[in-house]
């Protein structure tokens, strides 16, 4: 029982990391209609920035906050100077551009900081606490809590503020939004910046466990994409729930389904995707959308 609960909580924590990445992907997709394959790479870059800052002697929390600020700026600049050229054109081209960006960032990080695993300090102590009568790691609980708070803040921004309303309007119909004076270009930069910040939070939380490498989030990106498809591209809450399900199932299957083990656990979300998409093509929580032309 204790082992089961620990596996579930650990799964929830890795699932939260997938969820943050997945939400970042949904955010960009809502705003610009394209999937940013570089979302994980951008997040890793910010984790390197945080790591470098701690090596300069800054306290960890300050380094992470500065790395988040860096991410907002970097995300906004990527939109302004790179993606804007492709947003109105062929979506396939734009997606290939994001894949190119991923390769570029990975290569750049490897060149600057080598491909060796770097130790990234943890925000949370490596202790366990007693929870429902079993002991679970503080790190897993803390990771889940931070990401849940980040998601609630994001939700609050979108439903409770004028900026959030403007971001939603631009996502629905940029040209029509401009007729009401909304600065579409600047709002898209904000959207990309927020998405990058979310990725930065995820990277900083998961880096101690995975250790920092340029390809640290490649697997997580695959899981995040699985969550996006499973949850439905239009439903932020669906995406988060899907990411948690994937994180938990992945952990449980590795231990309890003998032939899967740790080598095959990467297949779990995809089996799930196939099953769900056959039954519900719009994803678990997504709405059937009419394609805008």
């Amino acid at each position: 029982m204790g082992k089961f609960v620990q596996l579930v909580v650990d799964g929830l924590s890795t699932g939260s990391v997938y969820a943050a990445l997945a939400l970042a992907i949904v955010l960009v997709h809502q705003a610009t209609g394209l999937i940013n394959f570089a979302q994980g790479g951008m997040a890793v870059l910010s984790a390197y920035v945080a790591w470098w800052l701690t090596n300069q002697g800054l306290p960890l929390i300050v380094a992470i906050l500065l790395a988040i600020v860096f991410s907002v700026v970097f995300g906004a600049l990527v939109e302004r100077w790179l993606m804007r050229r492709f947003e109105r054109g062929d979506p396939d081209t734009a997606v290939v551009v994001t894949i190119g960006l991923l390769t570029l960032i990975t290569g750049f990080a490897g060149w600057l900081w080598t491909y060796n695993n770097q130790q990234f300090p943890s925000l949370f102590p490596l202790d366990t606490v007693s929870f429902l009568g079993v002991s679970v790691s503080v790190r897993s609980l803390g990771t889940t809590a931070v990401i849940v708070v980040a998601m609630l803040l994001l939700q609050g921004l979108f439903v409770g503020t004028k900026l959030g309303l403007a971001l939603r309007a631009v996502a629905i119909n940029p040209q029509s939004a401009a007729f009401s004076g909304l600065p579409v270009g600047r709002l898209l930069m904000v959207g990309w910046g927020l998405a990058a910040a979310l990725g930065a939070v995820a990277a900083a939380l998961v880096a101690p466990q995975l250790t920092l490498t340029p390809g640290m989030l490649d697997n997580a990106l695959v899981y995040a994409l699985a969550a996006v498809i499973l949850g439905g591209l239009t439903s932020p809450i669906g995406v988060v729930v899907a990411a948690w399900i994937i994180g938990i199932l992945e952990n449980l299957a590795a231990v309890y389904v003998p032939f899967i083990g740790f080598d095959l656990k990467v297949a779990v979300p995809f089996i799930l995707i196939f099953v769900v998409l056959i039954v519900r093509p719009q994803g678990l929580f997504g709405r059937k959308t009419v394609v805008r032309v």
Binding site: L165, I172, N173, S176, G181, L182
Partner: peptide
């Protein structure tokens, strides 16, 4: 007010009006 109306479908009527007052 464009041909085809350009209303923001996923927003409520009130939110559409609030978007109009953005500036």
């Amino acid at each position: 007010v464009p041909e085809g109306r350009g209303t923001l479908g996923d927003l409520t009527v009130r939110d559409n009006l609030r978007v109009g007052a953005y500036l």
